[in-house]
Design a protein around this nucleic acid. Structure first.
Lengths: 216, 216, 216, 216
DNA sequence: CATGAATGAGGGTTCATTCAT
DNA sequence: CATGAATGAACCCTCATTCAT
């Protein structure tokens, strides 16, 4: 975890450091990500970074946490009041939240994505945790749907959840392939309205197919 | 392309080198994959590798080719005689082939998987080509299915194909999560019969869901 | 150009690094000069050198600049007040300066010398520039001498200048052959008075011959 | 010295090897010259070269000998019958021979030239020997000229000889600068007649200046 | 708390040389 | 006598990390 000195930093400086670190880890492996380049871009001394974080792994862990928390925050905002929706509305909402996350924080999404594959300095369990947590959330929803009869009873909740999450996490790549929006471009302007409506269509089609796949 | 010296190598030695290289590139980025570690594991001199391959990129390209060709070989074997099957049988067969590939050559699958995302020394087009080619194959199948009325006409073939491929390529991770078979373990013994039947069930469930998702 | 970190270095350390680099590049090609040997001799870490210079070429360029500037400084000191001297006095002065340079900084002279022939990482033009600049300086002097009637009009200024420069640049080798002063020896003590007077005689003889060669 | 196996080689093959070695050592330092590239160009096995020569130094020594012998052969041919010429005719002849050598065997000349400066695996004395031998030859001639009264008695024979040799050895570079003939170009066609006459003029000017420099 | 120079291990690559075939 | 794969030291360069200021 970051040392307390990091929290004492002026807001803009702290944010600048985070941004540069996110940029770097979104583009490279854990191993290939370069501390030197992060501090260079952020305009801080190399030693300073080691007063905020114990080491490279510490910084990386911090970013992974940032991914989880940001996603969680979006979830929380979306699901604040509505406790009980029909399943497919819940699903749509959830799906929509995660899609928004991909669109709003493409680099964070990429970091989380990279973390699930390939060796990393963190215990494997910790890494998969993120994905499994998401899957579990879907599993819960699906089981509720089965209880209300909205979903066919012969559906294996975990497998269905897995397909949903997979499609979702790959969606980002597909979107950029189809729309030409490169998630890696740093100063990517906002997507155009035309692109946004195309993205909207992509997500609805996906949801429709998956819905048909499991609906009763 | 590898130098001819590589082909002249005794079979076991050549295979050992390939295995070690596959191990390394399956676990790491192109950038982080270490030639030094490969030769150390393979028990050859560092200079020797450079008599087999021009450079790191050359070795990497060779592995990517190995991925394509291995997959192609499995496809060829599976689709030899049956030119025209009902769509969902074709799909099942195709899906089954790719699943087998993931199971039999998990590391090769991982290398191909890594190649489609993140920076690499190869022209981006060449890299995405693999995935897009697979998607196109599914698109063709789906369009045929729409023509024969097996698939609902309002399905966007490309999106459906994308979901299939995504689920497929992520499946490996899911399988190892569920069965405890670690794809990264080098000397992974064969999966037990119990594991195999569980895997079988997973794939069939996935296919069922996807089939329901698009069937007429 | 060297990074600013190099200028911030304690004088003695900076000088030690320069000396070792000069030693190495005076003895070897650009290609064969070894960074590893430089840092070993200088007693610094290999990584440190790369905090002073971007790369090998950067260090080399710095040394070439050092050659030019050192020579220029000696020239400036010698030619401060006397704007218009009779030609052969000018020539003598100039010749004397360059000879002093060869004697005082034999290794720098050697580096500059090497740079004019053989392949190097710098644009060829930039490399020859040094030598050609020197030749041009002589050409100007000689043409002035022709104008004042001191020099025979049928002399080709450029060719004469070339002979002067050639003799000058080879002189160092000759001096060490005759006097036993090895230019390569690092801790060469100062030349003895006897050696100095012999050197003086050598230069005067050379000048005399060349003077007779072109005088009117 | 080369092993006897080298002499047993078919003439064309032996010559091809020599040519490629000359090319390489003319372009690079002793240290940078690459055995690998020589055998690659010559189209022979790397091991073969080590059956002709003990090692890199052996090959290098062989080439240096080739330089001496080629030059000696040209001298011998030029000075066969005429035992006693007036000094300046002797000088002209000698000068002309050495110029011819530079023009006919620019690469050999370059190898010899490189050998006199920079560290090499051979004992320094052996290296300077070549140059000193040439100087001694001039010294003898000049002393004869002094005896016959053609040359001023106050001329230091050794210094004069040194200037001659220096001018001569640098001449090659100057010629290529002025005429655009690159000595390094491998497949350099013959010089044009216009270039040849310019070269002729250059050499005559040089000789004239030097002659005036020492004539009585 | 900020700094940034110092460090040395490790990265990919090339090399002269050897030796079994 | 020809071959060319094997070798490991050395090449230039980058890196995460430390520590004196």
């Amino acid at each position: 975890m970051p040392l307390q000195t990091f929290d004492n930093l002026p807001e803009d400086k702290r944010q600048r450091i985070i941004d540069c670190a996110v940029d770097e880890f979104a583009q490279h492996d854990y191993a290939s990500a370069s501390i030197s380049k992060i501090v260079a871009k952020a305009g801080i001394a190399k030693g300073s970074l080691y007063q905020y974080f114990n080491d490279k792994t510490d910084l990386y862990t911090y970013l992974l946490d940032l991914v989880s928390q940001t996603k969680a925050k979006m979830m929380a905002k979306a699901f604040r009041q509505e406790n009980r929706m029909p399943f497919f509305e819940s699903l749509l909402a959830l799906f929509s939240v995660m899609a928004s996350f991909e669109l709003q924080y493409p680099k964070l999404a990429k970091i989380g994505y990279k973390a699930t594959s390939g060796k990393s300095p963190l215990p494997e369990d910790l890494l998969i945790k993120g994905k499994q947590a998401t899957i579990q959330y879907f599993v819960t929803l699906i089981n509720q749907g089965k209880a209300t009869g909205e979903i066919r009873p012969d559906i294996d909740a975990e497998i269905a959840a897995f397909i949903f999450v997979s499609a979702l996490s790959e969606m980002g790549n597909f979107v950029s392939m189809k729309t030409g929006i490169d998630k890696n471009i740093e100063d990517s302007g906002k997507p155009t309205p035309a692109q946004l409506s195309e993205i909207e269509r992509l997500y609805q089609q996906v949801i429709m197919i998956l819905k048909n796949g499991i609906a009763n």
